[in-house]
Amino acid sequence: MTTTNTYEVIILFDGYSKETENATEANCTCTLINGPKKIIVDTMTAWDGPKLTKSLQDRKIDCDDIDYVICTHGHSDHIGCNYLFPKAIHIVGYCISHEHVYTNHDFNREYIIDESVKVISTPGHTLQDVSVIVQTDKGVIAIVGDLFENECDLKDDSIWKKAGSDSEVLQIQNRNKILQLADWIVPGHGSMFKVNKNV
Protein backbone atom coordinates (compact mmCIF):
# COMPACT_ATOMS: atom_id res chain seq x y z
CA MET A 1 0.00 0.00 0.00
CA THR A 2 1.48 3.33 -1.07
CA THR A 3 0.88 6.31 1.19
CA THR A 4 1.93 9.93 1.03
CA ASN A 5 2.43 10.25 4.77
CA THR A 6 5.80 8.81 5.80
CA TYR A 7 6.13 7.74 9.41
CA GLU A 8 8.99 6.33 11.44
CA VAL A 9 8.30 4.21 14.51
CA ILE A 10 10.96 4.79 17.17
CA ILE A 11 11.14 2.72 20.34
CA LEU A 12 12.10 5.22 23.03
CA PHE A 13 12.26 2.61 25.80
CA ASP A 14 11.87 -1.16 25.65
CA GLY A 15 9.46 -2.45 28.26
CA TYR A 16 10.15 -5.29 30.67
CA SER A 17 8.42 -7.38 33.30
CA LYS A 18 10.05 -9.68 35.84
CA GLU A 19 8.96 -11.40 38.99
CA THR A 20 10.78 -10.70 42.24
CA GLU A 21 10.30 -12.42 45.58
CA ASN A 22 7.46 -10.16 46.71
CA ALA A 23 6.29 -8.28 43.63
CA THR A 24 6.60 -7.69 39.91
CA GLU A 25 8.99 -5.14 38.46
CA ALA A 26 7.62 -3.79 35.19
CA ASN A 27 7.48 -0.87 32.83
CA CYS A 28 5.91 -0.62 29.42
CA THR A 29 7.46 -0.13 26.03
CA CYS A 30 7.24 3.56 25.09
CA THR A 31 7.03 4.38 21.39
CA LEU A 32 7.30 7.54 19.31
CA ILE A 33 5.56 7.68 15.94
CA ASN A 34 7.29 10.49 14.09
CA GLY A 35 5.97 11.97 10.87
CA PRO A 36 3.26 14.42 9.79
CA LYS A 37 1.75 13.83 13.24
CA LYS A 38 3.84 13.24 16.33
CA ILE A 39 2.40 10.50 18.53
CA ILE A 40 3.51 8.91 21.80
CA VAL A 41 2.15 5.44 22.55
CA ASP A 42 2.19 4.36 26.21
CA THR A 43 3.93 6.86 28.49
CA MET A 44 5.35 4.53 31.19
CA THR A 45 5.04 5.26 34.92
CA ALA A 46 4.59 8.57 36.71
CA TRP A 47 8.27 8.41 37.78
CA ASP A 48 9.57 8.43 34.19
CA GLY A 49 8.88 12.05 33.24
CA PRO A 50 12.48 13.32 33.24
CA LYS A 51 13.85 10.48 31.12
CA LEU A 52 10.94 10.62 28.66
CA THR A 53 11.31 14.38 28.28
CA LYS A 54 15.07 14.02 27.73
CA SER A 55 14.58 11.28 25.16
CA LEU A 56 12.29 13.55 23.15
CA GLN A 57 14.61 16.55 23.54
CA ASP A 58 17.49 14.41 22.24
CA ARG A 59 15.38 14.06 19.07
CA LYS A 60 14.65 17.81 18.96
CA ILE A 61 11.03 17.26 19.98
CA ASP A 62 9.31 19.29 22.69
CA CYS A 63 6.46 17.84 24.71
CA ASP A 64 4.18 20.51 23.22
CA ASP A 65 4.98 19.16 19.73
CA ILE A 66 3.11 15.92 20.43
CA ASP A 67 -0.25 15.76 18.64
CA TYR A 68 -1.59 12.52 20.17
CA VAL A 69 -0.93 10.50 23.29
CA ILE A 70 -2.30 7.00 22.83
CA CYS A 71 -2.37 4.56 25.73
CA THR A 72 -3.21 1.02 24.75
CA HIS A 73 -5.05 0.61 28.06
CA GLY A 74 -5.45 2.38 31.35
CA HIS A 75 -2.99 0.55 33.62
CA SER A 76 -0.65 2.82 35.58
CA ASP A 77 2.55 1.62 33.89
CA HIS A 78 1.16 2.77 30.52
CA ILE A 79 -0.33 6.19 31.38
CA GLY A 80 2.02 7.66 33.98
CA CYS A 81 3.48 10.54 31.95
CA ASN A 82 0.39 11.63 30.05
CA TYR A 83 0.55 14.89 32.03
CA LEU A 84 3.65 15.92 30.04
CA PHE A 85 1.56 16.50 26.91
CA PRO A 86 -1.20 19.04 27.67
CA LYS A 87 -1.62 20.15 24.04
CA ALA A 88 -2.16 16.63 22.70
CA ILE A 89 -5.36 14.70 22.14
CA HIS A 90 -5.32 11.79 24.60
CA ILE A 91 -6.68 8.37 23.74
CA VAL A 92 -6.64 5.97 26.69
CA GLY A 93 -8.27 2.71 25.69
CA TYR A 94 -11.68 3.74 24.35
CA CYS A 95 -11.61 7.17 26.06
CA ILE A 96 -10.70 10.22 23.95
CA SER A 97 -10.16 13.60 25.58
CA HIS A 98 -8.53 16.99 25.29
CA GLU A 99 -8.38 19.01 28.49
CA HIS A 100 -11.87 18.64 30.02
CA VAL A 101 -13.66 17.67 26.77
CA TYR A 102 -14.42 14.00 26.12
CA THR A 103 -15.22 12.78 22.62
CA ASN A 104 -17.34 9.73 21.88
CA HIS A 105 -16.05 7.24 19.34
CA ASP A 106 -17.53 3.84 18.61
CA PHE A 107 -14.50 1.57 18.63
CA ASN A 108 -16.42 -1.02 16.65
CA ARG A 109 -14.86 1.02 13.85
CA GLU A 110 -11.34 2.31 13.43
CA TYR A 111 -10.23 5.69 14.75
CA ILE A 112 -8.41 7.21 11.78
CA ILE A 113 -5.63 9.70 12.45
CA ASP A 114 -4.61 9.83 8.80
CA GLU A 115 -4.11 7.42 5.89
CA SER A 116 -1.04 5.90 7.58
CA VAL A 117 -2.06 5.72 11.26
CA LYS A 118 -5.19 4.30 12.85
CA VAL A 119 -6.30 3.05 16.26
CA ILE A 120 -8.24 -0.20 16.43
CA SER A 121 -10.02 -2.08 19.19
CA THR A 122 -8.10 -5.15 20.43
CA PRO A 123 -9.67 -6.17 23.74
CA GLY A 124 -8.41 -9.05 25.80
CA HIS A 125 -5.87 -7.91 28.38
CA THR A 126 -8.54 -5.36 29.29
CA LEU A 127 -11.90 -5.02 27.59
CA GLN A 128 -11.00 -1.55 26.26
CA ASP A 129 -7.55 -2.32 24.84
CA VAL A 130 -6.57 -0.59 21.61
CA SER A 131 -3.67 -1.03 19.19
CA VAL A 132 -2.04 1.52 16.90
CA ILE A 133 -1.47 0.42 13.30
CA VAL A 134 1.17 2.34 11.35
CA GLN A 135 2.00 2.05 7.66
CA THR A 136 5.75 2.59 7.27
CA ASP A 137 8.44 2.05 4.66
CA LYS A 138 9.43 -1.17 6.47
CA GLY A 139 5.87 -2.53 6.53
CA VAL A 140 2.91 -2.45 8.89
CA ILE A 141 3.88 -1.93 12.51
CA ALA A 142 1.33 -2.73 15.22
CA ILE A 143 1.86 -1.17 18.65
CA VAL A 144 -0.29 -3.40 20.81
CA GLY A 145 0.37 -2.88 24.51
CA ASP A 146 -0.21 -5.98 26.59
CA LEU A 147 -2.08 -7.88 23.90
CA PHE A 148 1.41 -9.36 23.56
CA GLU A 149 3.72 -9.17 26.59
CA ASN A 150 6.84 -9.90 24.54
CA GLU A 151 7.99 -12.09 21.67
CA CYS A 152 8.43 -15.11 23.95
CA ASP A 153 4.69 -15.35 24.54
CA LEU A 154 4.24 -16.50 20.93
CA LYS A 155 5.49 -19.90 22.07
CA ASP A 156 4.55 -19.75 25.75
CA ASP A 157 1.01 -18.47 26.25
CA SER A 158 1.38 -18.68 30.02
CA ILE A 159 3.36 -15.42 29.80
CA TRP A 160 0.46 -13.28 28.60
CA LYS A 161 -2.10 -15.22 30.62
CA LYS A 162 -0.12 -14.73 33.84
CA ALA A 163 0.06 -10.97 33.09
CA GLY A 164 -3.73 -10.89 33.33
CA SER A 165 -6.49 -11.15 30.78
CA ASP A 166 -10.05 -9.91 31.16
CA SER A 167 -11.00 -12.21 28.28
CA GLU A 168 -8.63 -14.91 27.09
CA VAL A 169 -11.02 -15.71 24.23
CA LEU A 170 -10.94 -12.12 22.93
CA GLN A 171 -7.21 -11.87 23.51
CA ILE A 172 -6.54 -14.96 21.40
CA GLN A 173 -8.81 -13.63 18.63
CA ASN A 174 -7.09 -10.24 18.60
CA ARG A 175 -3.60 -11.70 18.83
CA ASN A 176 -4.39 -13.74 15.73
CA LYS A 177 -5.82 -10.66 13.98
CA ILE A 178 -2.65 -8.68 14.65
CA LEU A 179 -0.41 -11.55 13.53
CA GLN A 180 -2.25 -11.56 10.20
CA LEU A 181 -2.24 -7.77 9.85
CA ALA A 182 1.24 -6.74 10.96
CA ASP A 183 4.79 -7.19 9.70
CA TRP A 184 6.22 -6.00 13.04
CA ILE A 185 4.76 -5.96 16.56
CA VAL A 186 5.67 -3.64 19.43
CA PRO A 187 4.56 -5.53 22.55
CA GLY A 188 3.73 -4.10 25.95
CA HIS A 189 6.79 -5.35 27.83
CA GLY A 190 9.51 -6.20 25.35
CA SER A 191 11.34 -5.32 22.16
CA MET A 192 9.75 -4.93 18.75
CA PHE A 193 9.76 -8.18 16.79
CA LYS A 194 9.15 -9.29 13.23
CA VAL A 195 6.11 -11.44 12.48
CA ASN A 196 6.98 -14.78 10.91
CA LYS A 197 4.36 -15.18 8.20
CA ASN A 198 5.51 -18.75 7.47
CA VAL A 199 4.30 -20.18 10.77
Rank of each mutant, 00 (worst) to 15 (best):
I141C: 08
T3G: 05
I141K: 02
L170Y: 11
L32A: 03
V199L: 10
K38Q: 09
I185M: 09
D14N: 15
D157T: 15
S131K: 12
Q173R: 12
N150T: 06
I133K: 05
T126Y: 07
C152Y: 14
T45R: 14
F85H: 00
F13V: 06
V144T: 15
N108F: 11
Y68I: 02
H125Y: 10
G80S: 13
K138E: 13
G93L: 02
S191Q: 15
F193Y: 15
N5P: 06
M192Y: 04
S167T: 04
T103P: 04
D58N: 15
V119M: 07
I70E: 00
D166A: 13
K37W: 06
I89D: 01
I159C: 12
T103R: 06
G190Q: 04
D137P: 00
Y94Q: 05
A23Q: 12
R109A: 03
D114G: 10
V119A: 07
W47T: 12
T4Q: 14
T126G: 09
H105I: 09
S131Y: 08
D153R: 04
L147I: 08
H125C: 09
P123Q: 11
V92W: 01
C152K: 14
D77C: 07
S158A: 02
W184K: 12
H125S: 12
D146Q: 09
T20I: 06
H78W: 00
Y83Q: 11
H105P: 09
I61K: 01
I178C: 06
G15R: 03
A163C: 14
I40W: 02
Q180I: 03
F85W: 00
A163Y: 15
L52A: 04
K51D: 09
A26K: 13
Y16C: 00
P50H: 03
H125F: 10
N176F: 07
L179N: 00
V169A: 10
